[in-house]
């Protein structure tokens, strides 16, 4: 079976996938951190589909600031772990959870209006694809090829050797 150890091209591809997804998450997070006026209110309030009321409930005055903070914290966490290549399994899982929430708030189900969506989707949209990509990253960490994990592995080997 092909593994990234004996397939450097596959490893490079997965590293690129990981860094780009991390890039995407981090930038989204940073933009929100530095914009005090940002709020997820609009996204949640316009939620559609079977979980509409759940997302609607998150817009209450008491809950919304927590939702906003948790959202950017999670975005930045996923971004940092995937770009740096450390704790990437945790990062990939957090990314999947976020993307699942984004998908469920605005699922691309037939009959539902697609708000702020560029392109046309039927069931599968970009959030869902990125979520599956995160699953691949979870299954196959690449921090040992490119990332802090490589440094940690190296120092571990060094310690064992000495």
């Amino acid at each position: 079976m092909t593994t990234i150890q004996n397939n450097p091209k596959l490893a490079t591809g997965l590293v690129l996938l990981r860094v780009f997804i991390g890039w995407h998450f981090l930038y989204e997070g940073i933009v929100k951190v530095y914009n005090p006026d940002w709020t997820s209110f609009g996204y949640l309030a316009s939620a559609q589909g079977p979980f509409k009321s759940v997302f609607g409930a998150l817009t209450s005055e008491a809950v919304l600031p927590w939702v906003d903070t948790l959202n950017w914290l999670a975005l930045v966490f996923v971004g940092i772990t995937l770009i740096l290549g450390v704790f990437e399994k945790a990062g990939a899982v957090a990314g999947m959870v976020l993307l699942a929430l984004y998908y469920l708030a605005h699922p691309s189900f037939p009959g539902l209006e697609q708000l702020n969506a560029e392109g046309s989707y039927w069931l599968v949209n970009k959030n869902l694809i990125e979520m599956v990509a995160c699953y691949v990253l979870f299954l196959q960490p690449t921090g040992g090829c490119f990332g802090l994990q490589r440094v940690l592995n190296a120092s571990k080997t060094k310690t064992e050797k000495s």
Binding site: V19, G79, I80, I83, F146, G147, L148, A154
Partner: peptide, 9 residues
């Protein structure tokens, strides 16, 4: 390869 992510970040 180990620290390359830092400048990207």
């Amino acid at each position: 390869l180990g620290l390359g992510g830092i400048p990207i970040l």
